[in-house]
Amino acid sequence: MQSEITVALITLIGSILGSVCSVAYGIKFLGYRMEQLEKKVDSHNKIVEQIFVLEEKIKTANHRIRDLEKGS
């Protein structure tokens, strides 16, 4: 009976340690994935800003072309 209790306690301790380690690893992995996602979002936002600037430049260029064509 004593050996069964010892084995059960060792198994319980192993299960608890395994659960704690897997949760800690999961949290660390989640943090890493969040960092990667933030980098992608930053990159996306920069591209959106650049597109906005380019669209404004194109509008200005189109207005200037129309003005030049009207003057001819």
Rank of each mutant, 00 (worst) to 15 (best):
I5R: 04
V20R: 03
T60D: 06
M34C: 11
M34K: 15
S15I: 06
I5M: 04
F52Q: 11
S3Q: 10
C21I: 12
A24H: 02
A8V: 02
K28T: 05
K70P: 01
T60W: 00
I51N: 14
A61L: 13
K59P: 00
L9W: 01
S3I: 09
S3W: 00
L37D: 10
V48H: 01
K59W: 03
V48F: 02
V48T: 09
I16C: 03
R33E: 10
K59F: 07
Y32V: 10
K70W: 00
I16K: 01
K46A: 15
T11P: 01
L30F: 10
E69T: 09
K39W: 00
A61Q: 07
G71W: 03
V41N: 03
Q36D: 10
A8C: 03
H63C: 04
K57T: 05
I65Y: 01
L9M: 05
K57R: 13
S19P: 00
S43M: 14
F29W: 02
S3M: 07
N45G: 08
L12R: 04
K57S: 12
F29E: 10
A61H: 06
K59R: 11
S22L: 09
L17T: 09
Q50N: 15
F29T: 08
N45T: 15
M34A: 15
S22T: 11
G31S: 14
K57L: 08
G18E: 03
S22N: 08
Q2V: 09
N62G: 04
E4V: 06
Q2N: 08
H63N: 11
R64Q: 13
V7C: 02
R64M: 10
D67N: 11
N45S: 15
T11L: 05
S22F: 02
E69L: 12
E35N: 15
V41D: 02
V7D: 07
I13R: 07
S3R: 08
K28G: 05
V23Y: 04
F29Y: 06
E35Q: 15
L37H: 08
K57F: 02
H63T: 08
I13A: 14
C21R: 04
I13L: 11
E55N: 14
K39V: 02
G26D: 02
K40N: 11
G18F: 00
A8D: 03
E69A: 13
A8Y: 00
I27H: 06
I27A: 12
S19C: 07
S15F: 02
I51Y: 05
E69H: 07
F29V: 08
I13Y: 02
R66V: 05
E38F: 04
K39R: 14
M1L: 08
C21T: 09
V53I: 15
L9I: 08
I5Y: 01
V53P: 01
E4H: 07
V23C: 04
Q50S: 15
L30M: 10
E55A: 14
K70G: 03
K39S: 13
I27W: 03
F29I: 05
S15D: 05
R33M: 13
L68H: 05
L54P: 00
S43R: 14
G26Q: 03
E56F: 04
L37F: 05
E4Q: 11
N45C: 13
H44M: 14
G31R: 05
I5W: 01
